[in-house]
Amino acid sequence: MSGAPKISVRGLKKSFGSKVVLDGLDLDVGVGESVVVIGGSGTGKSVMVKCIIGLMEPDAGSIKIDGQEVTGLKRGERERLMRKFGMLFQGAALFDSLRVWQNVAFGLIQGHGIGRDEAKTIAIKTLGAVGLDPEVAELWPAELSGGMQKRVGLARAIAGKPEIIIFDEPTTGLDPIMGDVINDLIIKCVRDLGATAVSITHDMASAHKIADRIAMIYKGKIIWQGPSKTIDQSGNPYVDQFIHGRGEGPIKMEVRAL
């Protein structure tokens, strides 16, 4: 990474009651870089991205976007900052009460103040960019398959041409072929927009494919990071155990006796 980071996280801490989830996490993401954060369930990946995007307030630490401190922003400032972000949620999080095109156009109408007709045109064009026909635009989210919902979610995330895109488990719940289609779309969309991307995933095939750099989170801290092609030679026993999916190793799963 060269130059000032697009996203800079320092000493991020977040606890829920006595459970410490983030314990002084540091992470930098460069402009136009695609960073994938891997880690087991409950290690703090989702909490980290929720803090970055402002859905959760950290207990301590600093988050800077383009050098501007964003923790503790007022609601109005936060809403303006959100125009820089797009997010693909794990379950797509499409609004069931709106048609597909209205979902994609939502941020354009509400966040960017674009008129309804123009927003619909952009929405249909964006749906085309993720491989969906214009007829899909008039359907309801409940009428779509899981893979199509992910594509619509991706279209919604990129419709406003965000500078930063967050992908939360983009391939979870999809078959391997559809997962790969989504990975290709993510690479294409991020490249076309010149956006900075932060993804969190368990899926190592996806991580290998979409990441410039991979970081591993464990017990609320980044314990290793490096170029994606070097992860197989990381020399870190935690990373080795995770990427090979081994039960034996330094990472102990919390399993209670029956």
Partner: peptide, 22 residues
């Protein structure tokens, strides 16, 4: 409630829309 548990309320926030207002 369904919007909350399926992340739709969080999605509103990421689309620059205040969930209270909407």
């Amino acid at each position: 409630g369904t919007m909350r548990v399926t992340d739709q309320i969080d999605a509103l926030s990421t689309l620059s829309t205040n969930p209270y207002k909407y």
